[in-house]
Design a protein around this nucleic acid. Structure first.
Lengths: 112, 112
DNA sequence: CTTGACGTTCACGCTGATGTGAAGGTTTAG
DNA sequence: CTAAACCTTCACATCAGCGTGAACGTCAAG
């Protein structure tokens, strides 16, 4: 399929897809006319990326998951690198939550 | 005092101070040579800005506090506009915390 | 042939708060 | 007089993930 269809099916803009490619997260064969050509695996791949982003991952964070899927695994999260990223991300979130709560307290204290 | 001293005393870069001025948060008299001239009140003002930023406020958020101080109040937080910003900020933080916790749960669920 | 809906590659714009020079004037100490 | 340490005003660079146009090629339908 071409980029427009992939965009529709995965719910992202064509611009975003080209961006993912530019970042090395998405690869596309090219037709004789230069058009990008994708298959079903790419749909899943993009959905994986979006799912990760929805949970707070950056594109950079998503890289190991993509590599993991490309390596033939059914899930992008089974590879050790992916697991590491998840652990790091959880720690980041926890830190951020603590920071926010501290800020909240600071703000309340300041106002009284 | 000149910008360098204010920078040292308030713990921010001269670049930042010029930035605050550009944004209308800081005003400076000018000497005959064009150099900015600050006084003690400005030190307190910059410290107020930094304190707010440390708690998560943007420069834009700090604006009413600065105006409140300039209006002659001892604290930048006593004016109604400042109170509004604090309330809004607290709500934002709470939302953010909830989002992060939801993401955290999502991430854990996904991994099991 | 022509329109319209696709596709292509640049490349700047946006948000926020500075960092980092460039290119130069001023002041101070020796 | 000179060098160091100030100061001045631009104005581009950074981080992330695209949006938005420019300028143009491709292709199916009427």
């Amino acid at each position: 399929m071409r980029i427009g269809e992939l965009a529709r099916r995965s719910g992202v803009s064509t611009r975003a897809l080209r961006h993912y490619e530019e970042k090395g997260l998405l690869a596309a064969r090219r037709g004789a006319n230069g058009y990008r050509d994708y298959d079903e695996a790419d749909v899943r791949l993009v959905q994986e990326i979006r799912a990760l982003m929805a949970v707070g991952f950056t594109l950079e964070d998503a890289r190991p998951f993509v590599a993991c899927l490309r390596a033939g695994n059914e899930s992008g999260g089974v590879c050790p690198e992916s697991v590491d990223v998840v652990r790091r991300k959880l720690a980041e979130i926890d830190t951020e939550i603590r920071d926010l709560m501290a800020r909240r307290d600071e703000m309340l204290r300041r106002n009284t």
